[in-house]
Amino acid sequence: QKTKESFLSKITKVIAGKSTVDEEVLDNLEEALVGADVGIDTTIQIIKRIEKRVAKDKYVGTSELGKLLQEEIAEVLVDAPDQSYRNFDVPAGKKPYVILIVGVNGVGKTTTIGKLAHNYKKAGKEVILGAADTFRAAAVDQLTIWSERVGVPIVKQAMGSDPGAVAFDTVQSAVAKGSDVVIIDTAGRLHNKAHLMEELGKIKRVIKKVIPDAPHEVLLVLDGSTGQNALEQAKQFTATTEVSALAITKLDGTAKGGVVLAIANQLQIPVKYIGVGEKIDDLLIFDKHEFVDSLFKL
C-alpha cells in the first residue's frame, strides 16, 4: 500500500504541470512495469499510450494522474465476451459446460480445478471432474482428494491410461447424469514438447466426439511468478488448443503476474480468475483495476 502510493505520488510530482511526460516519469514507469514482468515491448507500448494521452489532454492535474495511468494500462486488458463466469453461471445452451484445463508443469492446474468446482457447486451447479492427468505421480490421488473436499464426483482410470479415454468417459458421464459443469484436468506439459502438445489436441478432439462444440472453455493456467516465458506458453497452447481464458495463480506472493498484459496485448485472451492461496476459497474473479493497482504495490 505504502509503496504503491509513493510510486504514484512520485510520478504525480514529476509530471504535474507538464504537457509532456519527461524522461524521469517514464523511467519510473518503466521500472515499475518491467519489474512487474510486463516485459519491455508492452511497457514501451503502454508508455507511448500515456505520452499520447498526456499530449492530447495537455495539462493533467495531479489528482487525475493516477487515474489516467490506471485507465491506460487497464485498457490493454481485454474483457471476456461472455460475463456469466463471474457468477459461475453456465451460458445458455451449453450444458454440460465443458472446461479443459491446460498449462505447463506445476502452475496450479489441479488446485484451480478444486477451487473452481467449489465455486460452481456453491452456485448450485452439478459438477463432475475428469482426471485426465494419468502421468504425474499421484496426480489422480490429488484430484480425488479435491473432489472429496468439494463433494463432487470424479471420473478416473488407472495411472498410465489414455487421457483421451478419461476425458471421453467424463463428458459422456456428465451427459448421462445431466451435470451442469465438467472440468477436466490434464498433465502439466512444457509447450515446446510437440508430442505432448499433440496429445492435448487429441484430448480436445475426443471431447468433441461427445459434444461437438465442446470444450466450451480452454483455461490456460499461468503461474503468476513466471516471467516472459508465459507469453510463449500462451502462444503455443493457443496454437494447439485455442485457449479461451486465463487463470493466474500464486498471486498471494510477491510476484505480480504482469506478463498477462503482454499476453492480452498480443493474443487478446481475457483473464478470468486469479489464485491467491492453496485453500478451497482462494480463487477470485479477476478485476482489472485491482490488478493494475497491484502492479505498483511493493
Partner: peptide, 12 residues
C-alpha cells in the same frame, strides 16, 4: 527454483 521465474526471483 523454476527456471521460468520472472522478476520476483530476487525477492524469493
Amino acid at each position: 527454483v523454476d527456471s521460468m521465474t520472472g522478476q520476483d526471483a530476487v525477492n524469493t
